[in-house]
Simulated assay, not measured.
Amino acid sequence: MRYTTLGRTELRVSNFCLGTMTWGTQNSDAEAFQQIDYALDQGVNFLDTAEMYPTTPLSAGTSGETERIIGRWFAKTGRREEVVLATKIVGAGNRTAGRDGAPIGPATLRLALDDSLRRLGTDRVDLYQLHWPNRGSYHFRRDWTFAPEEQPRGQAEEMLAILETLGELTREGKIRAVGLSNESAWGTATYLRLAEAHGLPRIASIQNEYSLMCRSFDLDLAELCHHEDVGLLAYSPLAAGLLTGKYAGGARPAGSRATINGDLGGRISVHSEPVAEAYVAIARRHGLDPAQMALAFAAARPFMASVIIGATSMEQLRTDLGAADVTLPAEVLRDIAALRRRHPRPL
């Protein structure tokens, strides 16, 4: 397992991060505990969660249960100090967290963080992330209708108030570093500029979707993050399972995410499924496990801080973490590049 310093912080995180969004619906406490124990034994030191988890399915009735499960694991094992713990506050419009869809701001930050700390059974969060910007986001297939010209002016003033509160919470010892999620290059750059100008916490990471089939990060955001030392935390590196091959030919295995969340957040379509099967075919042709090929590709990207993996079974988790030992040869990378050239934007 390789480790990376997160942004310009003192946090060292493993190249793979254990995602948790199925814990509390698809996975029980015992299954989640087994996953954490195994991941730590393999060198993973990074856990990512959110106040709205689990999401399979998303429900106000289960919101926060994933954090409670992690808190129960801390209480049972006493291993809090072995984990770099990341969680998130929901953005405007989400009502599962019990704040009636209120936007992120000074009051909601304090309320949400205190609630997360209580559920997690800890006095601090190592990385506190804004789950999506109040102004909206082009992620989750919203890029087809994204209209930045409709955003109200004054975004920087709102973002400054958020950073000021994060600065207070940092000084109070409740958080160690701050990160973004589902953000754009403009949003990230604005937070960085405001932090430098006002002596406030610097953005350490950005958690955006990244996979063989979703590579918009390779452009402006990759350039920004290279020059500003902001690491990517990649979610959905397997395109929600499409890149494992388990949905090939229209298959929908019992209990899989596609049987719960339908089209996998817009990822399943007549455009995407043939491309996913073509990536799986590349892996098979070179004697590779498809999931491991996809994860190894993401982990090797120069801007990658950590790849977030999620599993509902120990078999899946063992396969996924096996990617830490995989280095893709040049001929595989050439085949991947050729397929991307033919299908640059399948999702």
Rank of each mutant, 00 (worst) to 15 (best):
I203E: 01
N261S: 10
D263L: 07
I206D: 13
I260G: 05
L232D: 01
L238T: 06
A258Q: 06
E223R: 14
G265P: 01
V275C: 08
L238Q: 06
H226I: 04
H227V: 02
A276Q: 02
D263H: 03
I206T: 15
R215C: 06
A276F: 05
A239M: 13
K246M: 13
V275T: 06
L221R: 03
L233K: 02
S216A: 14
R267D: 12
L200P: 00
R252W: 02
D218T: 03
E196R: 15
M213T: 13
L243I: 10
L200S: 08
G241C: 11
L243R: 10
A239I: 09
G266R: 05
N208I: 06
G199L: 10
V275H: 03
S272W: 00
A254E: 14
R215L: 11
L224G: 00
G266P: 00
G199M: 07
D263E: 12
N208P: 03
H227P: 02
I260D: 10
S272Q: 01
P274Q: 08
A276R: 02
A239R: 10
P253K: 03
L224D: 02
S216P: 09
G255R: 04
S216W: 14
E223V: 13
Y235D: 08
A197T: 10
Y247S: 07
I268Y: 08
P201L: 00
G245F: 06
A276K: 01
V275R: 01
L264I: 11
L212H: 06
E228C: 11
L232T: 01
A204Y: 06
P237C: 12
L221I: 11
S256A: 09
F217W: 15
A240E: 15
N208C: 09
C225F: 07
L212N: 06
V230E: 01
A251I: 03
T259E: 12
L242K: 03
L233H: 04
E196D: 15
L238W: 04
L221A: 09
M213V: 13
L242N: 08
D220R: 11
L232H: 00
S211E: 10
L233E: 03
L200A: 02
P201N: 00
L232R: 07
A197R: 14
L233A: 06
V270K: 12
I260F: 08
G199I: 08
